[in-house]
Design a binder for these strands. Structure first.
Lengths: 335, 335
DNA sequence: TTGTAGGCGTTATCAA
DNA sequence: TTGATAACGCCTACAA
């Protein structure tokens, strides 16, 4: 039998109204009364029932994040850093974080969003891994559910987001590699409908062109953001007649797959062949030789996204902010 | 203006009762009526309001997990695999997963549990990283909130849990190493109050003793489960006059830190010195040379824990199950 | 087989 | 400065 606001009121010989207002910090309650209420609440371990409050206030004090789990057992540490950021910021803002996993674009994914939206489980969403055209953006906009995202889609909808300049960073990395003498630079792609793929790949092509190098199809490998995918892509790239001297990857995980394929050929990463990822995951710093990567502050981005979401929750009239982040190229001792 | 059960009832000229019962699958509603209701609900995109339902039913259909984040930016992929398992199983059982991060044993951690318990945010908890004496066990037991855990504490409380036989696995690994000729086998510890530390360390000592080797203090290094901690511990172990030929670690993350320290001394892991971790994380398979580890099925354990929790939620009279899992020693080509 | 009505615990409106 | 009261949306005992 949990303690309710009525129990507290009864004990103090006050009305529930007064107790409620005292605890919520309204200023039309006598200071002495407030102190008594607070003391009693603490002593009785009273905490407002969230369901009742939510029903009354029509908000959940909860934000939602649906993890795009391509495989049943997803393994990209990107998400653990991202979720950590969401969790920490949510916690310190006193809202809860609701998490689910779902395969992108599957019916399953839609069900999760629908359940949470219609069931009023969450007040807003954090999105990432955006697709160029993203039904989530359209859907949430139509339902008037606030959301923020990492990466911006092409959908004609206004919303707050953080963008990472993958285009510029990859472009610069390509130019640096060319300066170091590389001419055969390959790129391992992610799924074509993803914003990060379009963005980073465009940077790759633009870098090559700026250096006067013609992008060639045999140096482009399709992949799927996984270690496994990177491994297979590299096998393909390494078996052509004039193999690349550098391989850029859509993300760090893919790059580690490339590492493995390279080693199996008896080559040494970053001595015989240059390999670069994208994300700047913590584990890249433990790899040997240390992976070249483009470091985006995943944890901080996640925290910032939560801040932005809470802001748009509280002041819905504010204009949508759009933040652009320049990631940092990490080239620890390189070939 | 979200659609409520009343809207559906009005549209069909039925009472809310009938609609409610039809949707919940009661058998005292005419089949034809049920079909009409279901069709209308689908068309109107009606989903029951969770807060209202929760208030009425007195349960949240949500389970909670508090991530023990020692650092602000925790980085152990163990947790991403664990959370993935929780999320997947929760999702397929149609309950939600509430997540927060908190430093163990801090006041902050207690606050999270209290908020969720008193606020009725969750119906039960999944715990891991148990301490030998764990206030969470005592607290939840006292509050009569169901929970399950990975690893069992010494607290005199009955509860369902999964145990991994770290003792046996580490012991066997030690014996195998001795067979291979190792005599100087070191151990890098985790925090002493953790169950996994007590368990695995005991296995280490018992293995040595069974092989007729006297454990010696200079081969024991304190650490904290992190990469950084493993790195420092290894530096210490490698600088003694008669350094170890094998280093066992409390977990994989620590082992990777050891890798780094070993390499900085110009040594090659698993050729010049044997290094082993514990967890069997996905990334161990990408390391080079591949890390020796003790593989516990983290993802499946997490799913199983959720199942056990939901079971004890639904049938509170069932006896508590205790599952023991034998982890698997992974020694891919070793010195 | 269907409908009526009361209440889950809170907060907000309004009156005292 | 405080209190009575009415919702929020849903479920269910009970009545029809």
């Amino acid at each position: 039998m949990p303690v309710t606001i009525r129990d507290v009121a009864r004990k103090l010989n006050l009305s529930v109204t007064t107790v409620s207002r005292a605890l919520d910090g309204y200023d039309d309650v006598a200071e002495e009364t407030r102190q008594r209420v607070i003391a009693a609440a603490l002593e009785m371990e009273y905490v407002p029932n969230r369901a009742a409050r939510q029903l009354r206030r029509q908000r959940a004090d909860t934000i939602g994040y649906v993890l795009p789990a391509h495989e049943p057992r997803f393994a990209d540490p990107f998400f653990s850093e991202f979720v950590a950021g969401l969790g920490d910021e949510a916690g310190s803002s006193n809202v809860d974080l609701l998490i689910s996993t779902a395969s992108p674009n599957e019916e399953e994914e839609q069900l999760v969003y629908q359940r949470w939206v219609h069931g009023h489980k969450v007040d807003g969403f954090v999105l990432n891994h955006m697709r160029l055209r993203d039904w989530r953006v359209i859907y949430l906009d139509r339902k008037e559910v606030p959301f923020v995202s990492l990466e911006r889609t092409l959908d004609p909808v206004e919303y707050a987001c953080i963008e990472v300049d993958g285009f510029g960073a990859v472009r610069e990395l390509v130019l640096r590699l060319v300066e170091m003498g590389h001419r055969r630079i390959a790129f391992v792609c992610g799924p074509p409908h993803l914003v990060i793929q379009a963005d980073r790949y465009a940077g790759y092509r633009d870098g090559l062109r700026s250096a006067g190098i013609m992008p060639t199809l045999e140096l482009i490998a399709e992949s799927d953001l996984t270690h496994q995918g990177g491994y297979h892509a590299a096998q393909q790239l390494l078996s052509i007649s004039d193999p690349p001297s550098a391989i850029l990857c859509i993300n760090d995980l893919t790059a580690f797959g490339v590492y493995q394929a390279v080693r199996e050929r008896g080559l040494q990463p970053n001595r015989d062949i240059c390999i670069a990822g994208f994300d700047g995951l913590e584990i890249t710093r433990w790899s040997h030789p240390e992976l070249i990567t483009i470091d985006q502050p995943v944890y901080d981005i996640a925290r910032q996204l939560v801040k932005m979401l809470l802001m748009s929750l509280n002041e819905s009239d504010k204009p949508y902010s759009r933040v652009m982040i320049k990631p940092k190229i990490m080239m620890p001792g390189c070939c």
